[in-house]
């Protein structure tokens, strides 16, 4: 771990450092410290369990935004082979905040899409912190139509604070781009699987989440607006973001309870940033189970089920019980 260390991660990181040092010491001095090391490893395990099984919503936000959390390309490299990255919307430009291409998953060609944040300030500036412009969403549409033409499923990885709120984005029609991206995905005649792998922020995230299933990693979040903005707008106090995260129902477990996501994908103990390979394996298990099932469905059935799924989502009849409006 080289990037920013989360406060609640610190005891884990420190202990892991200590184990590393002890191993080196044992090797150099040729003494056997196996018992001590095993003991410390047990303590790390217990710490991780204790911390990561009890993360508060705000802590999940921090984990979801962790600079070392694997991004879409990290997962593509682990889940797929033969990746060819494609660029540009054929209308205006190429958006470094939203990547896409073709790859092979479980032997089957797939189209992959997703927002990408940077690991450090330099890369974040280059990738605009994962906040896409209209050209990103228009490239996504182009690649989705291409996927349809070649009958290959689409895997979309979501990780963005939101679409970029800037002048160029408005001038080039960010509203139009997001709306059409949603529409394109809803009508696409191939299976579409969306995985929220980090921060699912607002309409910019939703644009890639209109497929046959919405999957979310255990410590990822999905929200209508950032907790900071929620606190700032509703309570006029952005310092209450921690509290806002609690009431907004943005964690994977909350979203599952609200029937807004189809499945929560477990993460290795300590979160995806502690073990990217383990995180990728768990995503693979879910995709390998769901993709062939969706791919086997006749198109008519696929689209009908997709329509029904979104018709049910947010149907107020589900939430009427216990409603305390007078």
């Amino acid at each position: 771990m080289t990037g920013a260390i989360l406060e609640f991660d610190r005891p884990i990181v420190e202990l892991e450092e200590k184990i590393k040092e002890l191993r080196q010491f044992a090797r150099e001095k040729e003494i056997n410290l196996d018992a001590e090391i095993a003991n410390l490893e047990k303590r790390v395990q217990a710490l991780k369990e204790n911390i990561y099984q009890n993360l508060a919503p705000w802590q999940k936000v921090l984990v979801a935004r962790h600079p070392e959390r694997p991004n879409m390309l990290d997962y593509i490299n682990r889940l797929c082979t033969d990746f060819v990255q494609l660029h540009g919307d054929r209308l205006y430009g190429d958006d470094p905040a939203l990547a896409g291409g073709i790859a092979r998953f479980d032997g089957r060609p797939v189209t992959v899409l997703g927002q990408i944040k940077g690991r450090d300030t330099r890369e974040n500036l280059a990738r605009n912190f994962g906040m896409a412009h209209p050209e990103g969403y228009r490239m996504a549409m182009r690649l989705m139509r291409q996927a349809e033409k070649f009958h290959r499923p689409v895997l979309a990885f979501i990780d963005t604070p939101g679409a970029y709120p800037g002048m160029g984005a408005e001038e080039r029609g960010i509203s139009n781009a997001i709306a059409e991206c949603i529409q394109t995905m809803l009508m696409l005649e191939v299976p579409v699987l969306s995985v929220i792998i980090g921060e699912g922020g607002s309409g910019g995230a939703l644009a890639l989440a209109s497929g046959d299933c919405i999957l979310i990693q255990e410590h990822a979040v999905f929200s209508v607006i950032s907790p900071e903005a929620y606190a700032s707008i509703l309570w006029k106090d952005s310092s209450r973001a921690r509290e806002a995260a609690g009431v907004m129902k943005i964690t994977a477990a909350d979203l599952e309870a609200l029937h807004l996501v189809d499945e929560v994908i477990p993460e290795p103990l300590g979160g995806a940033h502690h073990d990217p390979d383990g995180a990728a394996e768990r995503i693979r298990e879910v995709l390998s189970r769901r993709l062939p099932e969706l791919a086997a469905r006749p198109v008519g059935q696929l689209l009908a089920a997709r329509g029904e799924k979104f018709r049910r989502i947010g149907d107020p009849r589900i939430y009427l019980t216990g409603n305390d409006i007078t």
Binding site: A179, I182, Q183, L186, M187, S202, G203, L206, A209, S210, F222, S223, V224, I225, Y230, I233, L234, M248, K249, I250, L255, L258, L260, R306, G307, F310, R311, I313, G314, Y319
Partner: peptide, 23 residues
């Protein structure tokens, strides 16, 4: 904008309405 007090449920109305428009 969104009805923030209803969280992601509010956001999902975008997809729900667009899906109906497709039909």
């Amino acid at each position: 904008g969104a009805r923030m007090q209803e969280g992601v449920l509010s956001l999902m109305q975008m997809t729900k309405t667009v899906s109906a428009l497709c039909r």
